[in-house]
Design a binder for these strands. Structure first.
Length: 602
RNA sequence: GCUCCCAUAGCUUAACGGAUAAAGCAACGGUCUUCUAAACCGUAGAGUGUUGGUUCGAUUCCAACUGGGAGCGCCA
């Protein structure tokens, strides 16, 4: 079913098409930035007035006559230079509440044309333990996967792990000399990382170590059985350890097709690109250069250069090194082809750090030239996580925060507060609450902010339980559950049956009362859920959903203060129970799409 | 040198080209015999880095500049 916004949009669009030619482009309707003006507004009269040199207020009057507002809105008001403000009728809101409430999907329709999309996220390196730097991609990608799935798309969550490449030469070299199978089994990342660091330090000082590591890599890539066997062991133990983290995070993948999976395809990919004239040999390497068809400013394979005669110089993308090894660009292109051919992906979403923008611009353009121009390719980038010194948390100097430790501390901090607030709960209940609340707070702190911004990693901030945070939303849910517990199962059941019967049999008779101002405000807000989902999905920005849920929870808390639910007046009580129920389910559903659970009490 | 990103209240952020720029945190002052005070109510606090431009209208679009960050053939 349509949201009020979509309903208004359709009606205004109809009137616009009837009155104006050429038709100005939409969307025409948006929520009023200031609720005092109304629920929705359109400024199409201003736009059209300018284009046709007519008085916008006159156009606005014509529009008001033509728009079919009567059944859902009060008489529109023309304001200022020609805004038209709409205010929804209370009866319409009440009726829409009822329709959403009886629907399992809360009135959110499934998309008409489901798309097959691959979402590429998390992508840790299996030689290193997951750290804070993997957090954003993992939870952002997971949220997007859940969101698109709920909207009805066919989502393929693919973890493109770094299980191949140069680092493994060092590790193999080191492991063959001082590896310990027992330690590997116990703590794969810890053991591999220790080895990696040691060898790296040695390699810095000793040329022969570097050479030896390179030879190891070549052996591995050529398929040397001993090396492959060791590598397979690293992979197995590392994947098991990764899986533990993902389970704890509640993150799911449909596939884990890492870099190694594409290894055998790389020569074919590079040959194909060369044969088609997209890539060519250069200084012993093979690289993709500009095809000269784009405006130089927009060409990712050119950068400006005052020294050069044309004003631009090449900015190639290397796909094969001069020593015959393949760069990750080759892997990315092979992956893209596989996703097209095997998954029939119509869209691929890369949830990857913003530092790789140039790389993806080049990959996407190369893919287009290669013939994969039917696929939508999106680099959903995010900012860097900074340390307290406002510099990126580095992975090599040992200063990185392990994800495991991060999760443990989130739980521990949440646990302290829970023990304090709910001393009467059992230890296991407290522990389970701590897990859900701590993890929720951790995820939400990241999801609630614009992904493009860098942020300074800070325990207090990540785990603050005030303001726009997961616990605040979880608490709104908890308050509803408390009301239902107090009312008793039977009372709630009876109330719901009565309201349902009224809604079905006599749609004209009100079953939902929105007589208090906060009730109306809550009812109004409840209808906007779908708008926030579509906005969040369309822009790949879950923070729009967070913002909506925060606003919903805020209105609900106000409602909770002002409108006692369990009162003698049965009709009002039933109506409020329904408002509570729809609020709780909307919060639970919204949080679920963010990968966050709710609790019965906290 | 080139390219990209960022700049809004003390701090962290929001604002889908529009009306008097919105929240949270921190600060200050109130509210628990009544469904969980991880809550609510109130006070104070910015004119959006600078300079121009486009527009009836710019935090939003464009240009230049300043400051911060990142990336820029043979790591991923």
């Amino acid at each position: 079913m349509n949201t009020p916004r979509q309903e208004m949009e359709a009606r205004v669009a109809q009137a616009v098409a009837k009155l104006f030619s050429p038709v100005p482009s939409g969307p025409y309707v948006r929520p009023c930035p200031d609720p005092r003006h109304g629920d929705f507004q359109t400024n199409v009269a201003l736009v059209q007035g300018k284009q046709s040199q007519t008085n916008p207020r006159e156009l606005a009057e014509k529009l008001v006559e033509t728009i079919a507002w009567n059944d859902i809105a009060k008489p529109p008001e023309i304001a200022g230079p020609g805004f038209i403000n709409f205010q929804l009728k209370t009866e319409y809101i009440a009726q829409q509440i009822g329709r959403r409430w009886i629907d399992e999907r809360l009135g959110i329709p499934v998309v008409e044309k489901p798309e097959t999309l691959v979402i590429d996220y998390s992508a840790p390196n299996i030689a290193k333990e997951m750290h804070v730097g993997h957090l954003r991609s993992t939870i952002l990608g997971d949220a997007l996967a859940r969101l698109y799935c709920f909207l009805g798309h066919k989502v393929i969550a693919d973890n493109h792990i770094g299980d191949w490449g140069t680092g493994f030469g060092m590790i193999l070299f080191g492991y063959k000399r001082e590896g310990d199978p027992e330690k590997l089994k116990q703590d794969p990342f810890g053991h591999l990382e220790t080895i990696y660091r040691k060898i790296q330090a040695k390699a810095k000082a000793d040329e022969s170590v570097r050479e030896a590591a390179k030879r190891e890599l070549v052996l591995l890539q050529q398929g040397d059985p001993k090396s492959r066997e060791l590598w397979a062991q690293f992979l197995k133990y590392s994947l098991d350890a990764l899986e533990q983290i993902y389970q704890r995070l509640g993150v799911h993948f449909d596939h884990t097709l890492g870099e190694s999976f594409y290894n055998d395809l790389l020569p074919g990919v590079v040959n194909d690109l060369v044969r088609r004239g997209i890539a060519r040999e250069s200084e012993g390497a093979i690289a993709i250069f500009s095809e000269g068809k784009l405006p130089p400013k927009d060409d990712p394979f050119l950068v400006s250069d005052k020294e050069s005669a044309s004003g631009f110089r090449d900015n190639p993308l290397l796909i094969r090194k001069s020593d015959g090894g393949f760069n990750y660009a080759a892997t990315d292109l092979a992956t893209l082809r596989y996703r097209h051919e095997h998954f029939r992906a119509e869209r691929v979403i890369y949830v990857v750090d913003g530092r790789q923008q140039m790389h993806f611009r080049q990959i996407f353009d190369a893919a287009r030239r290669w013939g994969y121009d039917g696929m939508k390719l999106e680099h959903v980038w995010f900012g860097t996580i900074l340390g307290p010194d406002k510099k990126p948390i580095k992975t090599r100097d040992g200063g990185d925060v392990k994800l495991k430790a991060l999760l443990a501390e989130a739980e521990e901090r949440a646990g302290k507060i829970i023990v304090e607030k709910r001393p009467e709960l059992s230890n296991s209940e407290q522990a389970s609450l701590a897990r859900i609340v701590g993890l929720g707070a951790l995820k939400y702190a990241d999801l609630a902010q614009n992904r493009n911004l860098d942020y300074v990693f800070n325990w207090e901030k990540l785990l603050a339980f005030d303001g726009n945070t997961a616990p605040y939303l979880q608490n709104a849910y908890v308050r509803v559950r408390a009301i239902f517990r107090k009312a008793g199962e039977q009372t709630v059941k009876d109330a719901f049956l009565k309201v349902q019967a009224l809604a079905k049999l006599e749609p004209s008779r009100p079953a939902i009362f929105l007589s208090e101002r906060v009730e109306l405000e809550l009812g109004r807000k409840l209808l906007d859920f779908a708008d926030s989902l579509l906005l969040a999905a369309g822009e790949y920005r879950p923070h729009y959903l967070c913002l909506y849920l925060f606003e919903l929870a805020t209105v609900f808390h106000k409602f909770y203060e002002a409108c006692p639910v369990l009162i003698p007046d049965e009709a009002v009580r039933n109506s409020r129970l329904v408002l509570c129920d729809l609020t709780a389910r909307t919060l639970a559903q919204g949080l679920n799409l963010l990968g966050i659970n709710v609790v019965e009490q906290m």
